[in-house]
Write a protein that binds this DNA or RNA. Structure first.
Length: 713
DNA sequence: GACCTGCTGCGGGGTG
């Protein structure tokens, strides 16, 4: 409490979920608010989730009511009348999202000083979820602009899970003065963990059904045959989940929305076949708020058991009551995420339980070397080993975030009714969070924005919105800095089920599974972007779209260690042991312990044992030289070249020294990935892409190491 | 070869 009571410094409190971080921050804050003689003291609480604001409101409101201080929730679902009440008399605690705070800057710019003049503290919840992201950079900028507006520094109190490098967290909270951030990290003894990794092998039918028949079955009543689309390993995992989890509360993390729907449907069918009430429900970001809240309340209800099959929606801190165990289907992609998921299990004093289910394909004469290495299982084992070693990915702090800088320039103009170029640079870059941007780059950016009709310069030098800039800022979609795909709404009668991406619209009469139920599409309204469905007996799981992930260097290095290590991890079941032995045998049979390149038909496979940023960079280097490259994750497949020749070409690449990331970026065709990237001039887009997506130095070091294990035949 | 997050101001019409 002391560092917060002092009221003169920034503090980070790092501890696991449900360990009392909120109370640790708000008890001393309440003391200081009550002591303030004007009675109008204000604290600002910022949350990445609306659901978290609703949770915190129910905990904080009764407490602050005893002190005669109001608590105001503020996000997109809060009534305008309630927001007006706060604006009329800003005091107490304001619970808000970064986007709604952005909205206040844009629409109340001139009154910002009067709204926040009595601000005493800023609390940032789930700080780790902001670090290294566009949204995190936006929040840093808003907090800095807030201090500029009220002309004084306000202590920042951040709440965080104990993840990765705490040095990055202090730098994020107070850029430029991280050394003076007071760090409080929980040394909790750590819970006992019960852990098993289970292996499954898919048995393919001897005769593959013709593709056409498989494609048509979704549009005919033949889709009714239960489990028709499920392979033997999936069915076996479903059976084991049903037997193990039935009767208690659990979370089942599947890696994709598609697989969530698949398992939720499978488990519901099992319940119905056994004439039991359904206790397994799907939960992911494409389901409507209504369906998701139903699952959340089923988890909190102590009178009947409920298990949610979910994506990372249930990973962050919203309150879902006690959960007995956590299951993970398929390999996780990061240690940080697995750790968060594990943290969701285990009642007070009881061990946390984690079961990992891994499916591997049957090996035949046609199996690719990558599959023969059992990579899913080995990746899962590596991530579990790193979890047990208490390692965790640091977020990637590199990146200019120019898309978000474009956004903040437009927002700053709206707030002040216009700014000069030098004011803008000082507020956002010299003193604000965009420190990598020098005056020259800022000027190039402004000229680019003028060329795209976003800003214009008045005769007195003041920057204003140009017509397109004006239009963008005045629409509510401006407040978010992250990009979201356009989607169709899926509706059954007057019930909203969820959404599906626009690039894969469904045809009429096709059968789908959504929300753990089966539906037939009766109408697709292209104009209103609505898909109408009715209940059906059959269905198949839709494709939701989405982006590829990014595996950290350390995980691929650990995979190499798992292949080389003769020891069998204690946490594997017998099938997983068998599959790991097979993977290790093939690793040695391919002689990957002593070489980096192997032949695969007329192609070569290049094994780099490095993270995705490095592998992607090397793929770009090879493509720039005219090679046809396919990224297989664990290896790059380079078409029509034999290993010896490839090694010679790689030697030439190394001899040229570390590549220039900006030059490499020029050869990448689609670099638009962030919301306002489309407004950047080409040279700046390449600089941004080169430093955030590519790792030129890492690529050079990795290639040098790879060539120390040459092909010897 | 994956996931997640967020959103204003207004006019029209009904209710107390």
């Amino acid at each position: 409490m002391e560092p917060i009571l002092a009221g003169d410094r920034d503090v980070i409190i790092a501890a696991n979920t449900a360990s009392g971080k909120t109370e640790a921050a708000f008890l001393p804050i309440a003391t200081r608010l009550v002591e303030e003689s004007t009675g109008d003291a204000l604290a600002l609480y910022i949350s990445p989730l609306k659901a978290l604001i609703n949770d915190q409101l129910s905990r904080l409101e009764p407490f602050f009511a005893q002190l005669d201080l109001p608590v105001h929730p503020w996000h997109g679902d809060i009534a305008a009348s309630r927001k007006k009440r706060f604006r009329a008399h800003p005091r107490g605690v304001l619970l808000i999202t970064p986007e709604s705070l952005e909205g206040t800057f844009v629409s109340q710019g001139f009154y910002l000083h009067s709204v926040f003049r009595n601000l005493m503290f800023v609390v940032v919840d789930e700080l780790h979820s902001f670090i290294g992201t566009e949204r995190g950079r936006q929040l840093q900028s808003l907090l800095h602009r807030l201090e500029v507006a009220i002309k004084r520094r306000v202590p920042r109190i951040a709440l965080s899970a104990t993840l990765g490098d705490m040095g990055l967290a202090t730098e994020h909270l107070r850029p430029g003065d991280a050394a003076n951030v007071h760090l409080i990290v929980s040394k909790g003894a750590g819970q006992e963990i019960k852990l098993i990794v289970r292996g499954y092998e898919e048995k393919r039918p001897q005769i593959e059904p013709p593709e056409e028949a498989a494609g048509n079955s979704s549009q005919t009543e033949q889709g009714e045959a239960e489990d028709a689309q499920v392979d033997s390993a999936t069915a076996a995992i479903g059976n084991d989940l049903f037997k193990t989890l039935r009767g208690s509360n659990n979370l089942v993390f599947a890696n994709s929305r598609r697989s969530v729907e698949l398992y939720a449907d499978l488990l519901r069918c099992r319940c119905e076949a056994a004439r039991l009430p359904v206790e397994f429900w799907p939960h992911h970001g494409s389901l409507s708020k209504d369906l998701r809240e139903h699952v959340e309340s089923a988890l909190k209800d102590r009178n009947r058991p409920a298990t949610a099959v979910c994506t990372s929606t249930l990973e962050l801190g919203i309150d879902i009551g006690n959960v007995k165990s956590v299951a993970q289907i398929g390999t996780p992609y990061s240690v940080a995420s697995l750790r968060q998921r594990l943290g969701r299990s285990g009642r007070r004093g009881e061990p946390a339980i984690l079961r990992v289910y891994i499916e591997e394909p049957e090996i035949t004469a046609h199996t690719s070397p990558i599959d023969a290495l059992r990579t899913e299982l080995v990746q899962a084992i590596s991530i579990v080993r790193l979890l047990l070693a208490k390692w965790c990915e640091p977020p990637n702090p590199a990146g200019l975030h120019l898309s978000t800088l474009v956004h903040q320039i437009l927002s700053l103009i709206a707030q002040n009714g216009g700014i000069t170029a030098s004011q803008g640079w000082k507020v956002l870059c010299r003193d604000g969070p965009f420190r990598g941007v020098e005056p020259d780059m800022f000027a190039r950016l402004l000229r680019g924005l003028a060329a795209k009709d976003l800003v214009l310069q008045a005769s007195d030098g003041v920057l204003l919105h140009a017509p397109l800039g004006e239009k963008i800022v005045n629409h509510y979609s401006f407040y978010t800095v992250f990009l979201t795909p356009e989607e169709y709404r899926v509706v059954a009668g007057d019930r909203e089920l969820g959404t599906l991406p626009v690039d894969r619209p469904l045809q009429e009469n096709c059968l789908i599974i959504l929300g753990g139920r089966r539906w037939r599409v009766v109408r697709v309204d292209e104009r209103r972007r609505v898909i109408e469905v009715v209940r059906a007996a059959g269905g198949r799981v839709p494709v939701f779209g989405g982006q590829a992930g990014c595996l950290h260097d350390r995980i691929r290095k650990e995979m190499l260690a798992v292949y080389s290590d003769p020891e069998m991890p204690a946490f594997l079941d017998s099938k997983a042991c068998e599959l790991l032995l097979e993977g290790r045998d093939n690793f040695h049979r391919f002689r990957l312990h002593e070489r980096s390149v192997m032949r695969c038909g007329s192609d070569s496979l290049l094994f780099l044992w490095a993270g995705d940023r490095v592998v992607d960079t090397i793929a770009v280097q090879l493509q720039a030289l005219g090679f046809s490259v396919m990224n297989q994750g664990l290896a790059l497949q380079i078409a029509d070249i034999e290993p010896r020749l490839l090694l010679r070409r790689l030697g030439e690449i190394i001899a040229q020294g570390p590549p220039d990331p900006v030059v490499l970026a020029e050869s990448v065709s689609n670099k638009l990935s962030e919301k306002y990237d489309g407004f950047l001039p080409d040279d700046l887009l390449c600089e941004d892409y080169g430093c955030s997506r590519l790792d030129a130095h890492g690529a050079w070091e990795t290639l040098k190491q790879a060539l120390q294990r040459p092909e010897r035949t």
